[in-house]
Each structure stands twice: as structure tokens, then as C-alpha cells.
Design a protein around this nucleic acid. Structure first.
Length: 284
DNA sequence: CACCATGTTCCTTG
DNA sequence: CCAAGGAACATGGT
């Protein structure tokens, strides 16, 4: 579920539901997701604290809380990994099989579930410092990106996944942005022309904004059946409307005709991840 | 059974 | 020290 747009939508969804709510108890069901944070420390820190804000940095969720007793602000840092989800359930509803951490509020409980447990919910700030600029922010300019890409001969698709270059682009939107920019995923980063770099920056912003806009139109129901939870799945499942089908132009479309030129979409593996592209529109 | 999966980190090699 | 490649993490879907 998690690239920048999905995390952004989640933040917008949860922020108003959490603000002002107080944590009554913390239930850790899978210690692994705490990273180096000790379970006892997490409980002690969060119990009695009130959510004041929820923001995002790259693919990280930043929960801000204030504790009346300890009086200093606390940041709870979340990352959804590949399969993490967060949502509120009514107080005594049944928890899902892979609930990793549950924050008990007065009338609800905030569930962080993660089937593969690749995600994290911790008090560690580390990891955030290494992140590159926000792709939708002012610092992510063609000039910045050109300078950053110049230092590497690695394939541009692989560089797009490097969170220290730009924070929040993942495997799906990397393929989508390159397709829209008409750039081969194999192109060495330091061989992009100034024009290509500029177009790529624009397309990255465009594809992420579109995904956020798309997500904003879908009613969220995280607790529901995952097959119906379309927002956080890229599609190709079943009975998709045109609206859903048009969303991703190349991702997971190997063998299907390119929407622009009808050439079959190809799949290749880079850095152990799938890349989808049109061999005609995105020439080496 | 085989292969694939929205992410990140650690290890090895050069 | 750095870049690059690969395995590992853990579970589920097709």
C-alpha cells in the first residue's frame, strides 16, 4: 500500500480522526515492528498522551503527541513497508490476524496491521535525516535533480527508488513517471539531457499529484475486505471501471498494448524489482 | 510447487 | 570510502 500518495491520503484521512484523542493503552503484538524501541518505553511514552498532529515525510508517517505529565512533545514514527495499513476500529471489534500494534483510545482503537511485518512503528527519528527532498516541494527542482543524477551511471529507474535522492517515489510510480516522460528505465542517470531531467521532474510531480487526487475521491474503508480496498491496490484485479483501469499506464501491464502506440508493454528486472515500460515510447 | 508482491537494510564484492 | 548487486526479512496471492 505505500508510496507517497497512499501515505498522504492516509495522513489526510487519519489526522482529523486522531487529533485530540488520548492514548489509554498500547498493545504490541509483534515486537519486530518496534525496531530498536523497547516495548516498555513505547507504552510509557504514549500512555496518557494526546495526538496533536499527523504529517508525512516521504513514505513515513509522523504522529505528534503531547503528554500532560511529561510535558514534552513526542513523535511516533510509522512506516508501512509493503503491506502495512492503519485504521480505526470501534473499541471492542475483533483485531485482524496480523495486527502488529494497537493503540487503545477511549472509544476506538488505532490498528497498525502488516501481513509481512516489513513496516515499523517506533520512537526512532533515524532514517528521516537521510531522506532527499519532497518531490512535491520547492526544493525538488530540475537543477537539483540534474546535479544529483550527474554523479551516478546507474539506471535512472533504480535512482528513482533511492530515497536519499527524492523521498517517496516507489516502484509503481517510478515506472509510471518514466513512461510519461518517454525515458527508458535503463538510461544511465548521468546521461539524461537537461530537457529529459526537467520533463522527468515534472512527470514525477504530476503522477504523484494525480494519485493523490484519485485517492481523495475514493471513500476509505480500511477495515473492509482487502479485495475491495481499491485505493491501496494498483488494480488489475477484477470488474474494474474505466476510471480504475486508466489509473496506471504501464505498471503490471506486461503484454498489454501501450495506450499511446499499441506496442506491447515489457517487463524487466532492475535491482531485483520489476520495471514496466513501452519499448517504443521509451527508447534507449 | 513456483513465482511474484506498493520497501528497506545489511552483507559482499570489486 | 564508494558503487553495485543480491539476499534477507515474512506472508499471502495467483
Amino acid at each position: 500500500m505505500p508510496e507517497l500518495p497512499e501515505v498522504e491520503i492516509l495522513v489526510r484521512h487519519l489526522a482529523p480522526l486522531l487529533k485530540g484523542k488520548k492514548v489509554r493503552a498500547v498493545e504490541v503484538r509483534r515486537k519486530k515492528v518496534l525496531g530498536r524501541t523497547r516495548e516498555e518505553e513505547l507504552s510509557r511514552t504514549l500512555r496518557g498522551a494526546t495526538f496533536t498532529d499527523l504529517t508525512r515525510r516521504g513514505k513515513y508517517l509522523l504522529f505528534e503527541l503531547r503528554s500532560p505529565v511529561q510535558k514534552n512533545a513526542v513523535t511516533l514514527v510509522g512506516h508501512l513497508g509493503m503491506t502495512g495499513r492503519m485504521y480505526l476500529l470501534a473499541k471492542n471489534e475483533t483485531l485482524p490476524k496480523h495486527a502488529a500494534v494497537v493503540l487503545k483510545l477511549s472509544e476506538h482503537q488505532m490498528v497498525y496491521e502488516d501481513a509481512r511485518y516489513f513496516g515499523r512503528l517506533t520512537l526512532e527519528r533515524g532514517g528521516l535525516d537521510k531522506l532527499g527532498p519532497e518531490p512535491l516541494g520547492d526544493e525538488f527542482t530540475a537543477q537539483y535533480f540534474a546535479a544529483a543524477l550527474k554523479r551516478s551511471g546507474q539506471a535512472i529507474k533504480v535512482k528513482l527508488l533511492d530515497q536519499t535522492l527524492v523521498a517517496g517515489v516507489g516502484n509503481i510510480y517510478a515506472s509510471e513517471a518514466l513512461f510519461r516522460a518517454g525515458i527508458s528505465p535503463r538510461r544511465p542517470a548521468n546521461k539524461l539531457s537537461a530537457t529529459q531531467t526537467k520533463v522527468l521532474v515534472e512527470k514525477i510531480r504530476e503522477v504523484l499529484k494525480e494519485a493523490i487526487r484519485f485517492g481523495s475521491t475514493v471513500p476509505l474503508d480500511y477495515a473492509g475486505d482487502s479485495k475491495k480496498d481499491r485505493l491501496f491496490y494498483y488494480g488489475g484485479i477484477d470488474d474494474e471501471s474505466d476510471f480504475y483501469q486508466e489509473r496506471l499506464l504501464v505498471y503490471d501491464r506486461r503484454g498489454q498494448k501501450c495506450v499511446r502506440c499499441r506496442t506491447p508493454i515489457k517487463r524487466l528486472v532492475q535491482a531485483a524489482r520489476s520495471t514496466f515500460y513501452c519499448p517504443s515510447c521509451q527508447r534507449a
